[in-house]
């Protein structure tokens, strides 16, 4: 088949937009429902994130004159498109070249929404937005070191930056360690509870989102959902495909990808419901003092193994 057509199909259908947008709503629902069940509540109905999205599309936005307003409107769109692009890059189905499964591009696209959040908070010129953005910036400097080191250590042990090659390799101790390190970073990346500092509700209102309303807020919600899909999908692709490829069919690979992603979402939601929010200094200390040592150990042993063999 035409490679361009395949790439477009991947971006638009599976695992791209047509799959990712309902999956984003589904994951948002799973998160809220899991937290509700942990608190012995009934929780929101199944369609809730969808209704929220539609309702937000129909709301008015305050007038935002000039270039500053234009920039402020642009951030959620950039965040949504980059998160959707990250989902589209996940090599759920076996691929033949192109950008598919390119780890560096995937990491850049995964990082863009959080950069957008930082910029959005500062460009909204709200006091709470600026505090939230400053927190997000401090947090992203801390967890990204560990996140990147974990991924680089997996990549270095296999000497490739192609995700499907990493997924197809035999799971070693280093892979397991790397996946655990990525899982430790995900709550901070997704702003959920132990590290929900940037959008700490009841504390700094809604952080960087304070001034956003209507369709812009809907785009932020969607970007957040797509981040969930992309981040859990990254873990799922690191764990899943070599199992599915052993079984042989692409349909199974896709199903396994979804099931594993939902499992990661459930794990993170239960963690979010079971913990309270840490202060910014303890969060930063957690990543710099407790986790960084293991990440450095992982990458140095990966390099050692690489040059030894």
């Amino acid at each position: 088949m035409n490679p361009l057509l395949t790439a477009l199909a991947r971006f638009l259908i599976f695992p791209g937009l047509l799959f990712a947008v309902p999956a984003a709503w589904f994951f948002l629902w799973v998160e809220r429902k899991a937290v509700a069940l942990m608190q012995e509540r009934v929780g929101p109905p199944f369609m809730q994130p969808f209704w929220d999205f539609i309702k937000l599309l129909g709301k008015e936005t305050p007038p935002r004159p000039g270039i500053a307003g234009l920039i402020m409107r642009a951030w959620p769109l950039i965040a949504v498109s980059s998160a959707a692009g990250a989902v589209g890059l996940l090599p759920v189905l076996p691929s033949q070249g192109g950008f598919e499964g390119d780890l560096i591009l995937l990491l850049a696209l995964l990082e863009l929404p959080s950069v957008c959040i930082i910029c959005a908070g500062f460009s909204s010129r709200s006091l709470f937005g600026e505090i939230g953005s400053a927190r997000e910036a401090a947090l992203s400097v801390s967890y990204n070191i560990v996140f990147l080191l974990a991924i680089v250590s997996i990549a270095a042990s296999q000497h490739t930056f192609r995700l499907e090659a990493l997924a197809a390799m035999h799971p070693t101790f280093l892979t397991v360690l790397g996946v655990i390190a990525i899982l430790v970073c995900l709550p901070a990346k997704l702003h959920i509870n132990p590290f929900s500092l940037p959008n700490a509700e009841q504390e700094i209102y809604s952080g960087p989102m304070t001034e956003y309303a209507g369709p812009e807020l809907a785009m932020w919600e969607l970007a957040h959902g797509l981040e969930w899909v992309a981040a859990t999908g990254l873990v799922a692709t690191l764990v899943a495909p070599h199992i599915a490829l052993a079984w042989g069919t692409t349909l199974l690979a896709a199903c396994l990808f979804v099931v594993l992603s939902v499992a990661v979402v459930l794990l993170l939601s239960v963690l979010a419901a079971a913990t309270a929010r840490l202060a910014i200094d303890s969060s930063v200390r957690f990543y710099w003092q407790c986790t960084l040592i293991f990440a450095v150990l992982a990458i140095s042993s990966a390099l050692f193994v690489r040059f030894w063999s």
Binding site: R41, W51, D52, K59, S206, T210, L217
Partner: peptide, 21 residues
């Protein structure tokens, strides 16, 4: 809170008036 749980109706308490209906 858990006993009455308004989130069943989709209610969410928002921090910012810009988000509220």
């Amino acid at each position: 809170s858990p006993r009455y749980d308004a989130e069943q109706l989709g209610v969410r308490l928002e921090g910012s008036p810009r988000h509220a209906d």
